[in-house]
C-alpha cells in the first residue's frame, strides 16, 4: 500500500507561494496537536510518578512481589504482584475469547453476508459498542454470575485435567466470581470494538484484490486468506490493541464481577483474582493518604504494562512483514 505518497512537485505558478504557506500552516497545526498530546501524556506520567513515590517509600515490603494490599495499615504493606497477574490473565483470556469471534463477525459482515444484512449487522455491532461499561457490570453481577455457575462447573468437570481449569476443592459448584467470569464480561465488552474496527479495515481491501483471487479459482476462504487478511493484518492488530487497552483499563465491570482476592491463582475457574483498575475503583473511596498514593502507584504499573504490551505488539507487526505499509511504524 502506498499510504504515504509524496506530494507533487508544484508547477511554477503565482499560487505556489500561497500553497506552500497553506501546507506549512496545516502541517504546523497537526504537529502542534501531536506534541500537545505528548505533553498531556507526559504530564499524566509525571503526575503519577510524583504521587506514587511517597507511597513506594512508605511500603515496607517489596512492591513488585507482595500479594497484599494494606497500604493504610501501620506498617504499610502492599504490592502489585497479584493485581498485575490478574489484570494480565483476565485481559489475555478475554482476548482469546473475543478476537477470533470479533474477526469472524467482521469477515462475515464484509465477505459472507448479503450487502443489506451486512449494513444492518454493521450498525448492530457499532451500537453494541455503545453499551456503557457500567451496564455490562450490572448485567454481569445480576445475570451472568448466577448463570455462569453451571457452565464453569461443566468446564471444570470436563477439562479439569488442564491445570488452568483445575478445581480441586470443587468450589465451582456454588460460585462463579472467577477470572474466567471477568474475562467473559471483558470479552463481551471488547468484542464490538474489535469487530467494528476490523470491519472497517477489511472493507477497505480493494474489491479488485478480491476479484483477482476469485478469478484465479480460489474458494471464498482462500480468497480471504490470501487477498483479504494479509494487507489487513496491521489494521487488525490495531483493533485488537484498542480492545486490549479497554480490557486492561476496565474498572467498574470487573470490580462488580471479580471476587477480589490477593493471590496469584492460575485456576481461572475458581473464585478470586483481581485487577489493577478494579482495585483502584474499589479501594479509592475509603483510602487514606498512603492508600491513595499506593493506588496511584498501581496505576503507574498499569501504565507500564500497557507500554510493554504495545512494544510487544509493535514487534509482532514488524515480524509479520507489514513494514511496507508505513514508514512510520
Amino acid at each position: 500500500m502506498t499510504a504515504l505518497t509524496s506530494p507533487p512537485r508544484e508547477p511554477t505558478s503565482p499560487r505556489r507561494a500561497a500553497v506552500r504557506r497553506g501546507d506549512r500552516v496545516f502541517r504546523g497545526l497537526t504537529l502542534a496537536a501531536g506534541v500537545f498530546t505528548l505533553i498531556v501524556l507526559a504530564a499524566i506520567a509525571i503526575f503519577l510518578i510524583v504521587k506514587a513515590l511517597p507511597a513506594l517509600r512508605a511500603d515496607t515490603k517489596g512492591f513488585l512481589t507482595t500479594r497484599e494490599w494494606l497500604p493504610d495499615a501501620s506498617p504499610s504493606v502492599f504490592g502489585i504482584a497479584a493485581l498485575a497477574f490478574g489484570t494480565l490473565l483476565s485481559s489475555a483470556l478475554a482476548l482469546v475469547i473475543a478476537v477470533p469471534i470479533a474477526i469472524g463477525v467482521a469477515l462475515y459482515t464484509t465477505d459472507y453476508a448479503p450487502r443489506r444484512i451486512a449494513t444492518v449487522l454493521g450498525y448492530v455491532t457499532d451500537m453494541l459498542a455503545a453499551v456503557p461499561s457500567v451496564i455490562y457490570g450490572l448485567w454481569g453481577l445480576y445475570f451472568l454470575i448466577p448463570h455462569l455457575v453451571p457452565v464453569q462447573s461443566f468446564l471444570a468437570r470436563t477439562f479439569g485435567w488442564i491445570p488452568l481449569f483445575a478445581d480441586p476443592d470443587n468450589r465451582t459448584s456454588v460460585a462463579s466470581r472467577s477470572i474466567f467470569a471477568a474475562a467473559v464480561v471483558l470479552a463481551v465488552m471488547i468484542l464490538p470494538i474489535i469487530s467494528a474496527i476490523s470491519r472497517e479495515v477489511l472493507a477497505q481491501v480493494p474489491t479488485t484484490s478480491r476479484e483477482a483471487a476469485l478469478a484465479l479459482g480460489a474458494t471464498r476462504w482462500e480468497m480471504i486468506r490470501t487477498a483479504v487478511l494479509p494487507p489487513s493484518r496491521p489494521g487488525l492488530i490495531s483493533a485488537v490493541m484498542l480492545g486490549l487497552g479497554r480490557a486492561l483499563g476496565e474498572t467498574i465491570a470487573v470490580a462488580l464481577v471479580l471476587a477480589a482476592s490477593f493471590d496469584v491463582n492460575w485456576r481461572v475457574l475458581t473464585p478470586g483474582g483481581n485487577s489493577i483498575a478494579a482495585n483502584i475503583a474499589t479501594k479509592f473511596g475509603e483510602s487514606g493518604n498512603t492508600g491513595r498514593e499506593a493506588l496511584i502507584a498501581s496505576g503507574l504499573v498499569l501504565f507500564a504494562i500497557t507500554l510493554i504490551v504495545n512494544l510487544a505488539a509493535r514487534a509482532v507487526i514488524y515480524r509479520s512483514g507489514a513494514m511496507e505499509r508505513s514508514a512510520a511504524v
Binding site: E68, W69, L70, D72, A73, L141, Y142, I145, P146, V174, A175, R177, A255, L256, L258, A259, A260, S261, F262, P271, G272, T282, K283, E286
Partner: peptide
C-alpha cells in the same frame, strides 16, 4: 481496618455486591 487481608471467602463490591452474592448462593 477498612481493608482486611482475607484468607478466604469471596469479595464483592459494595453492600449491593455482597447482598447479591448471598442472595444467589
Amino acid at each position: 481496618g477498612k481493608e482486611i487481608n482475607w484468607p478466604g471467602g469471596q469479595g464483592a463490591k459494595g453492600s449491593e455486591g455482597v447482598t447479591a452474592g448471598v442472595k444467589q448462593t
